[in-house]
Simulated scan of single mutants.
Amino acid sequence: MKNINKLNIQFYKCFFTILFVMGVNLYSFGQDVIVKLDGEEIESKVLEITPESIKYKLFDFQDGPLRNISKEQVALIIYENGTRENFSKIEVSNELKNISLEETKAFIVEYINKYGYEEDTFKRPYKATFEGNYLRLVVLRRNGVDPVNDGLLYDFSNVYKFQRVSKRSDKLAFINIFVSILKNDRKDKWDKHKLVMRVSGIPEAESIVNALKHLNSLLLEKDAVDAKF
């Protein structure tokens, strides 16, 4: 009889533990996430979007006050159902608007492979390739052939912020972009990351940034078209 009671107690402990875990998981998927341009994430319940601002309540304090944030501070909103709404205004010059996705990708690969380096030294160049519409950047050793690692895979349809090119000298500039990278291939988990690239030349750095902005614009247009079907 005592053994049966022990089994019952263990069963109920397991049962309520499972219920608790399920409840936590359901709760965690019920929020909207406001992603600011500086990368900060606000777990919230978005209530209204006006031409100037986003009105929301904190997800874990929905009985609290209504809050406002300027749309100019927001990169995107990831809604509870997984859809994304982008707010960052990325300007693309008129000269680039007629350049196709494939041409843009080819230009990015060519310029990064010629002028792009790991942020700390000119001794480790980047090797850029595309896997579908994802950009892989691999750091090479000094010989420019052997890879240091497998590199990172970037999703330029999900850019948080393009910063201005940092100009250090005529032959040295830095690119700084907050963008999503693949963190876990098996789970298809992506996370925000700051890409810092050393570039040998200011015009070259500006050209790479403009091409990446155009890539972002083309991918967002493609996603919008795909969503309609």
Rank of each mutant, 00 (worst) to 15 (best):
I181T: 08
F162H: 04
I177S: 01
F174K: 05
I202E: 05
R168D: 05
R198C: 02
S200I: 15
F156W: 04
D155C: 09
K192L: 14
S200N: 10
R198A: 02
K183P: 00
L172K: 13
W190G: 01
F156C: 04
N176S: 13
D170E: 09
S169A: 01
W190I: 06
K189Y: 15
I177L: 10
V199Q: 02
V165E: 00
V165L: 06
S169N: 03
S169G: 03
S200P: 08
R168F: 01
S180A: 13
K192M: 13
M197T: 07
K183E: 01
N158P: 13
D170Q: 14
F156R: 08
K183T: 02
K161C: 11
K171S: 00
F156L: 10
I202P: 08
I181M: 05
K161F: 09
R168C: 04
N176C: 12
V179M: 12
K194T: 11
Y160W: 10
D185H: 07
S169V: 04
S166Y: 10
R186L: 12
I175Y: 06
D191G: 06
L195D: 07
I202S: 03
L172E: 07
I181F: 02
V196M: 07
Y160L: 11
D155T: 06
K161D: 10
Q163C: 13
L172G: 03
R198S: 01
I181R: 15
I202A: 03
L182I: 03
K183Q: 03
N184H: 00
